[in-house]
Every structure is written in structure tokens, then in C-alpha cells.
């Protein structure tokens, strides 16, 4: 479960996130969308404990990230936009490290989910950008954390891998995990997420079930809300 209550993040005079209230329950997959600079990455970094809110409370799996950052991290699998990995380990060795620090996990299942199995014993430095992203994804889900946060994590994946990852995320949700997926690709959100949250200028400007968006879909809603925000 993810909870943001009255969360505000200010850098100097600039307000990156402006009093957001958002709750995402167990078993939900939510797409987080917004234009560049809308505050998406700031929200994700606060969930991952890489930034602290200026005001408000951020909870991951029921744990306050400010009060107990280590505990919150145990509940969270996070794929940053530009994942950092150890280039001189193989994907399997890297996952062994992650499993050891997280206290357990299924490496073969994570490799299977991301389609990395055949390349798992090659050094990460030899990987393409897409394979690096798959490794980061595998590391985020290997120990089956209750909350999974993905920042543009499906970018750069070939279509079969992307399809496999989407199916696996759906399965994780069905098993009770909370998934927050930030992306610029609206089609991805429309297809895999049950709910979509849109940010603009640090505020939530839309929070809808994707099933309610109708035939005109997410793109129209996105453009309409952007225009409304710019006008108002």
C-alpha cells in the first residue's frame, strides 16, 4: 500500500509537489502520468526514500519513509529511470546480492519474468540498454516486495519482453502487490493499469479508473487536462 498525505516538496522557491493526497491499495496497478516537470520523479523519489517531503507524510507498506527509511525500503522494489548496476557482475550474481540483502527471493522466476535467462551469466557491462533495464526490473521484483514502483521502466524493452513484464506485473497485482508505474507512454498505462493518476505542476489533476475513460481514451483526457491547467 502507498499513502501520500498532504505531501509538499519545495526546492528553494520552486514547488515541485504541491499538497498531494494519494492512496493506492494492495492489488492495485496505477499509472502515473504528466508532462515533463510535472513532479512524477519527485513523487517516486520520495517513495524510494531518495528525497524527503518538505511537508506531509509518505508511507510505503504502512511504514513512514522518514521515520524508518530502512524498513520502508524493505517493502519497496524500485526501478529508477536510470538504474545503477554493478557492471562487473553478471545479472545472476547481481540478483544473488539483492536476494541476500533482502533476505530471500526467487532468482529464476525473476529472470524468467524479464526474459533474461539466456544472458543471466554474462557481465552486465556487455548488456544493451534494454537488458540493463530488465536486470533492474528483475532486482525490483526478485524478493516479491509488497510495493513496486517503476519509473519509465518499460522504455527500451523489445515488444516480447515488454509484454512479458506487463503480464508479470499484472500477476503480481493479482497476488496482492501494489504497483505504481510512471511512464510517458499512455498506451502502456491504458492497457495495464486499472487506474490512472495525472500530475500537472505538482498537483493531482486527474484520478480516474481506466475503464471509465471511454472510447476517446487517455490521450484525450491528458491533452484536455493539460490545456485546462495551462488556462487556469
Amino acid at each position: 500500500m502507498i499513502e501520500l498525505q498532504g505531501v509538499r516538496k519545495v526546492y528553494g522557491r520552486s514547488v515541485a509537489v504541491d499538497r498531494i493526497d494519494l492512496t493506492i491499495g494492495a492489488g492495485e496497478m496505477v499509472g502515473l502520468i504528466g508532462h515533463n516537470g510535472a513532479g512524477k520523479s519527485t513523487v517516486l523519489k520520495m517513495l524510494a526514500g531518495q528525497l524527503l517531503p518538505t511537508e506531509g507524510t509518505v508511507r510505503v507498506g504502512g511504514i513512514d519513509v522518514r521515520e524508518d527509511p530502512a524498513g520502508a525500503r524493505r517493502k519497496l522494489g524500485y526501478v529508477p529511470e536510470e538504474p545503477a548496476l554493478y557492471d562487473y557482475l553478471t545479472a545472476r550474481e547481481f540478483l544473488e546480492l539483492v536476494v541476500a540483502v533482502r533476505g530471500g527471493g526467487d532468482i529464476e522466476a525473476a529472470l524468467e519474468m524479464t526474459g533474461l535467462g539466456a544472458d543471466a551469466d554474462r557481465l552486465i557491462r556487455e548488456y544493451s540498454q534494454g537488458m540493463r533495464r530488465k536486470t533492474a526490473l528483475a532486482a525490483a521484483v526478485v524478493s516479491r516486495p509488497p510495493v513496486i514502483v517503476l519509473d519509465e521502466a518499460l522504455n527500451g524493452l523489445d515488444p516480447p519482453s515488454a509484454a512479458r513484464v506487463k503480464a508479470a506485473l499484472r500477476q503480481l497485482c493479482d497476488d496482492g502487490a501494489t504497483v505504481l508505474l510512471s511512464t510517458h507512454i499512455l498506451e502502456t498505462v491504458e492497457r495495464v493499469a486499472g487506474r490512472v493518476v495525472m500530475l500537472a505542476h505538482g498537483r493531482v489533476v486527474a484520478d480516474e479508473q481506466t475503464a471509465d475513460l471511454g472510447a476517446e481514451g487517455l490521450e484525450r483526457m491528458f491533452l484536455q487536462r493539460i490545456a485546462e491547467t495551462a488556462a487556469g
Binding site: 526546492y11 528553494g12 526514500g49 531518495q50 528525497l51 524527503l52 527509511p69 530502512a70
Partner: peptide, 21 residues
Amino acid sequence: APAMAGIGAVLGEIEAAWAQA
């Protein structure tokens, strides 16, 4: 050493402040 679990947020704040300035 246990306090290092929270160091990422401190450094993240420093970097964010630099990025603004």
C-alpha cells in the same frame, strides 16, 4: 553504520539543491 540507510535522502536533497542553483 545503520544510519547509512537514510543517507540517500540527505544526499538527494543536496543534489536537488545544487540542481536548482
